[in-house]
Amino acid sequence: MPDVGDTVTASLTVDPFDGTTAAALSVTAPNGTVTAPATSTADGGKTWTAPLTYTAAGVWRLLWTVTGTGAGVEPELVSVAPLPTVATEGVSYATTTDLANYLQAAPPLNAAKLLARATELLDSDFLKAAVYAVDGDGMPTDAEVVKAFADAVCAQVEFWGEVGEETDISGPLQGVTIGSVSLQYGAGDNRSGPDYYAPKLIRALQSLPADKLRWVAYTGGC
Rank of each mutant, 00 (worst) to 15 (best):
T13A: 06
R117H: 09
L12F: 08
L77R: 14
D6A: 14
E166K: 00
S40N: 11
E120Y: 15
S79P: 07
V78R: 12
F17M: 04
D43W: 04
R203F: 11
V134K: 15
K212P: 04
A150V: 00
P30A: 02
G45Y: 01
V181L: 13
F159N: 14
E162A: 12
K200G: 08
A106C: 00
G68N: 09
P194E: 06
W215I: 12
P209N: 09
D135F: 05
L77W: 09
T7H: 06
T53M: 10
V216T: 11
V176Q: 09
G19M: 04
L127F: 02
V34M: 03
P84T: 06
A116K: 00
T85D: 15
A36P: 01
W160F: 10
A100F: 01
A56S: 14
G5V: 02
L121I: 15
L109Q: 08
A198K: 12
C222I: 05
T13C: 02
L77E: 15
A129Q: 03
D6L: 09
T67A: 13
G90T: 11
A24I: 08
D168P: 02
E158P: 03
S92W: 02
W160G: 13
I169C: 07
G72F: 01
S207C: 01
F126N: 05
G186W: 00
K147V: 06
A210C: 01
W48R: 04
S11D: 04
T167M: 07
L115M: 12
L114Q: 13
G136R: 09
D151C: 06
